[in-house]
Structures are given as structure tokens and as C-alpha cells.
Design a protein around this nucleic acid. Sequence first.
DNA 1: CGGAAAGTTGAATGAGCTCAAATGGCGTGG
DNA 2: CCACGCCATTTGAGCTCATTCAACTTTCCG
Lengths: 238, 238
Amino acid sequence: MVFSNSCKQCTVRAQALCGVLADEQLAPLASCGVQRSLARGEMLVRAGDISSLCANIQQGLMKISHINPAGQEVIVGLLWAGDFVGTPFSGGQSLPAAHDIVALTPVTLCQFPQGRVERTMTDHPAMERALLSRTLAELGAVRSRLSRLARATALARVAGFIVESADRCATDDDGDTITTIELPLSRGDMADLLGLTIETVSRQMTRLKNAGVIGLPGGRRVAIHDPDALAEAAEELA
Amino acid sequence: MVFSNSCKQCTVRAQALCGVLADEQLAPLASCGVQRSLARGEMLVRAGDISSLCANIQQGLMKISHINPAGQEVIVGLLWAGDFVGTPFSGGQSLPAAHDIVALTPVTLCQFPQGRVERTMTDHPAMERALLSRTLAELGAVRSRLSRLARATALARVAGFIVESADRCATDDDGDTITTIELPLSRGDMADLLGLTIETVSRQMTRLKNAGVIGLPGGRRVAIHDPDALAEAAEELA
DNA sequence: CGGAAAGTTGAATGAGCTCAAATGGCGTGG
DNA sequence: CCACGCCATTTGAGCTCATTCAACTTTCCG
């Protein structure tokens, strides 16, 4: 249902199709995309919906989350700018969505009619193949997160998340000695993502700060003073 | 890389193709499948391998596992009879495998030349679409496991695993009042799968036994005395 | 400003881990 | 057939790390 994309700032075309198709082949699809905006906190898909949504995230960050019987929210994945969301084909039975999808920041996305995407895939098998390939890669990525959640300590989870965010959010000022990023998630969201409590997340952040590994200049900003130590902390295990 | 299949005892054809193709379309593929056996513990794929493996599991159970830097093994998924394993196309760049794949029981599988599978997919888009659909479903399933690992108590993890195994291994004697299954995993494998220690798994099994929910008649057998209580325990959270 | 939400810090509790020893099942060899 | 040894599993005791509950501080917006 979701496809990760490693490229940072690319057009809708490149995102959806991984560059396998020429521009003229995409024209019919690109021409029918509708731009849409979501406010922070707005829900795009509700678990249980029978939705034929099919879109590309252009800006912002969304969460894929699940609320368990005890009322706790678990974030099972994030969708960054460039990621694809939705079901690209009707596939006979339209299954209800398994998870909520909610905007964590203001989001802009480009929405397509499902039928049109499906037809484009049928006309251009390379696109479908690319989508399959990307989905397989995403599956591997989720499995890796699974192995971290299974065993890693609270410190390693938090450090790992900062490293990952730094990779994703990498600003252009790479000449600087110190990288500062703006975490896109609240402490509460981080806790839901990492399977911890808000307090524990906060404590580990403080711990990293006191160790001189990161700085917390205020807001949700994080200054990475010692990337190596941070990466090492992310590998540490129970 | 892996596709789950809910059907229990089906032929290679039905498994790989979800019944979307007629038999005669499959003949070229079916005719070049090679049967292969693996002993318990034998490794099919090693993490880092550049493998073009492409096969269907006919009998037995395999684990997809990852050994973390601390030397702990984490099982990120199981492959049951009927599941598909491997990369069905070369996709330009052959990525090295991210995980080990090892037989937990004696396994028989039907292996295909990758190129032939790829060609069959190209000739029959319905097959590729089915594969994509199945992969998306698998992605959802892994996400659900993720949410369980993130928050559930040890008891809930163990109970959940027993429920899942019971669904998978359901023997034909469904007329019986009490269902007994043979767990396909050792305590150690269960621990690796659930992100617990051997001792904790054992303790929770004992706890369920003492509560009268299950019986442990010996070996790896589990008698399910109270399915409802077991399901309830599986939902319980931290 | 002022109120609410978000984040930090502290103390006590408890679930699961570690280390260690006992028990049970099972195949081998006498 | 029984004794032995090996391996998986169970059980026990103490400890650690993350959670819980609670108070406090900071930041964000109206």
C-alpha cells in the first residue's frame, strides 16, 4: 500500500515511476493529477475505510498508525515527501484499509484517479515492475524496523530515529561542521513510533545531550555534534 | 521478497499465481520447476548473497532472520508451506539479500529459473499484478506484527503466536472439542521471533497452562483448552 | 500577558532479563 | 533393557531498565 522512495526532491513523475518511463508516456497520468493540501493532524485514510485513494506525497510527513484495543497508538510507518500512498489498482476485492494515515505536518499531495493509475500500469509494465520492486524494498525496510523494535534498548531506538531523520531531512548546508535538523515528530509521536513512553524518549534525548553527542537548541531542533557516537548508540543493544 | 499465502494445501501453480492464470498458460513455467529438499537447519539464503533464487515452499517451515551486531538473532518473518520466496525478476540491480533464510523443519520446495519466472510475468500481466497485490498484503501483515512487538506484553506475544500457529497448522480433525497442535518452533526460535528470552517464553507457557487455557502434553505439542481465553490473552497489552 | 499543550525531571514500581541450577526427553552404546 | 550423556525446557532468585504517577518548566499561540 505504500512505497518508499529514497530520492529527496523529485517530481511526481520521478517519484511514482522511478524514472522508468519517458515523460511523454506519463503525460496522460500527470495531466489528471489533482493537487490537495492537508493540515497538520488531518486524516487522509481511516482504518476500515474502503478507499481507492492513490496519491503521491509532495511535501510534508504522514504517519501510518494503528490504535490497539487498549487505546494505545502504534505508528507502524512514516510516509515522507516522495512516497506513494494508496492502492494503485482495484484488484477485484477492495480490502478495507488496515491503518489510519494522518498528516504530521502540513502536507501537499498529488492525487490520481485509481483507474487511471491502473491503466497506466497496464499500458507500461515497466511501471508496474518498478512499483513491485519498490514494495519489496519497503517490505525489507519494515522487517529491519521490526528487528530493532524487538531487541534494541530505548537509547538505541531514539538514537536510530535521529540518525534516520538526519538522513531524510538532510539540509543542503552540508559544508557545516555541525548538522542541525528539525525533528518532524513530537515526543509523543516518537514514543508511538519507537514503542516507548514520552518520558523515556525525553530521558534518552537528555542522556545523549549530557553525553555531548547531540545538542537541543530548543523546539524540536537537534544539533548532531558527534555523528559517530550517535550511530554507535543506535547499534547498542539490550 | 516474500509473499504470504493463506491457502493451506495447494499446488505450486495456485500458490505462485493466486489462481489468476489458466493451467495451459502455466505449463511453460511448471515444466521447468525443480524439486529440492532441505534438512532442518539448512540455509537457503545467506544475508549478503546475491541470489537469484525463486521458489515456492511446498512443505515445511522456514525462518527469515537477521543477526544483529550483538550476535542476537531476530526472526523477522516465517515462511509457511505455500509461500513464495525469492526475487521474481532481476530488476536491473540485484540487491544482496538482507536476511538469512533457514529451514526450521525439513522442507521441500519447487525452484524456478528466475528468468523464466520473469518472462512468465511479462507474458501474463495478471500474474505480476497478483504478485504485487500479495506483496502489499504481506506488507500490511508485517506492519501488524510490528505493532504487536512494539507494545504487547510477553504473555500477549506468546498467546498470539499460539493462536496464529493454530490457524496455520489447523489439522483436519476439527470435530474434536480440544485442538492439539505441534508447534513448529523451539522455545529458542519462539523467543527470537517474539523478541523475548527463552526463559520468558517458557514462563508464559507455564502461566497459560496453570490458568487452564492450554495444556502441554509434552514435546512441542500444545492443547488448546480455552480458545477464547487464549485470544483474549493475545489482545492484552502492557 | 495568560492559558494550554508539550517537554523535562524525579521517585517508586514492576515486567522481563541474567545467571544459575534442576528437571525431563531421547538417542546411543554397553 | 538399562545407564549414560546431551540437549531442550523449566524453575528460582536477584537485578535492571523502562514504565507509571506526579510535579515542574518551557514553548507555543491566541
